[in-house]
């Protein structure tokens, strides 16, 4: 926590705004999905903001991240613009991916965001590749793999621990453990511990409280610094809570009501706010103003996305190949 407090006022403000933007974005999508205006299905990151933002505050344009089906938060944390994101979620032509990817495949390569992913655990090998590029081209970049407790059982992820280790790649594996792989508890589905698994492959591994931005920030900083300086891959087991169900429409009956309530009461954004206000780092009124601004921004991009045109038939057969 102490090291997190070393952040400048501007950095703290930026972290708050990013977390707040994620929350506002997800809450808006939650409401609209219930209204039936969003096609397909969406998985929301609300409640997990401190993890994505705590890690990505250390990253810049050299760095790459791979995300999961629950990818909106990682996008925003890595600096992807919310307007084109919202268009994409609505399947609009001006969406980030031309309406061809949607919520589960949202990506912005120009920002080093290698994509949300509809396949659980698929980002881990890709991140090894991104790290290999950074290593061979000597960009100084690192690559972060966000994945869930469910994905931690995928062979692709475990193989990637090994590959990153034997090739000494600048990778950080960030296991975001919200306690449930879909509707099944990770307490039941994960044998051993995430930390123990990482250590088994020779990765320096730590458990982190994902409700505490500063804890994430500090642990990620250490792992990323190790990766950047040629020290190889690390693993962070970030324990957190999701506020909503696995997907929108999930009744969530596998969780007890008091469990969800307890999770919502331990809101990582509120905790962050309390800390910085109590430490007199940023004035509460300033944060309130930011809240209003973000709320207006998300509302505006929601209105714009809903009114925006859909792609046409001419778009069906484009973007399959560079040349064919």
């Amino acid at each position: 926590m102490a090291s997190g407090m070393q952040l400048s006022r501007d950095e703290l403000g930026a972290a708050y705004r990013r977390m707040r933007t994620i929350r506002e974005f997800e809450d808006a999508v939650h409401t609209e999905f219930a209204a039936g205006t969003i096609p397909g299905f969406v998985h929301l990151y609300a409640g997990e903001e401190a993890s994505g933002v705590g890690v990505c505050m250390h990253l810049d344009e050299r760095d790459a991240i791979a995300s999961t089906h629950r990818g909106h938060g990682h996008c925003i944390a890595k600096g992807v613009e919310v307007g084109p994101m919202m268009h994409e979620i609505f399947g609009r032509k001006e969406g980030l991916c031309g309406g061809k990817g949607g919520s589960m495949h949202i990506a912005d390569l120009s920002k080093g965001m290698l994509g949300a992913n509809g396949i659980v655990g698929a980002g881990a090998p890709l991140v090894c590749g991104a790290a290999l590029t950074a290593k061979l081209l000597k960009t100084g970049g690192v690559a972060i793999c966000f994945y869930g407790d469910g994905a931690s059982n995928q062979g692709a992820v475990l193989e990637s621990y090994n590959l990153a280790k034997i090739w000494n790649l600048p990778v950080v594996f960030v296991a975001e453990d919200n306690g449930y792989a879909e509707a099944t508890a990770s307490a039941w589905s994960v044998g051993g511990t995430q930390k123990g698994r990482g250590e088994g492959f020779g990765l320096p591994s730590r458990e982190v409280d994902g409700g505490d931005f500063f804890a994430v920030y500090e642990a990620a900083g250490e792992a990323i610094e190790r990766a950047r300086s040629g020290g190889g891959p690390s693993l962070l087991h970030v324990k957190l809570n999701r506020f909503y169900g696995h997907f929108e429409g999930d009744a969530g009956t596998y969780r007890l009501p008091e469990e969800v309530e307890a999770a919502r009461n331990a809101d990582p954004i509120e905790l962050f706010r309390q800390r910085i206000v109590e430490a007199s780092l940023i004035d509460a009124s300033e944060l309130d103003a930011a809240d209003r601004e973000i709320e207006a921004e998300i509302r505006a991009c929601m209105v714009a996305a809903k009114a925006a045109p859909m792609p046409g038939e001419a778009d069906l057969m484009t973007d399959i190949y560079v040349a064919y």
């Binding site: 090998p125 890709l126 090894c128 991104a130 290999l132 590029t133 692709a156 990637s160 090994n162 590959l163």
Partner: peptide
């Protein structure tokens, strides 16, 4: 993992 790593490397400039 290594086929995926090759894909990730291709996606990022190699």
């Amino acid at each position: 993992s290594f086929v995926g790593a090759a894909a990730g490397a291709a996606l990022t400039g190699l």
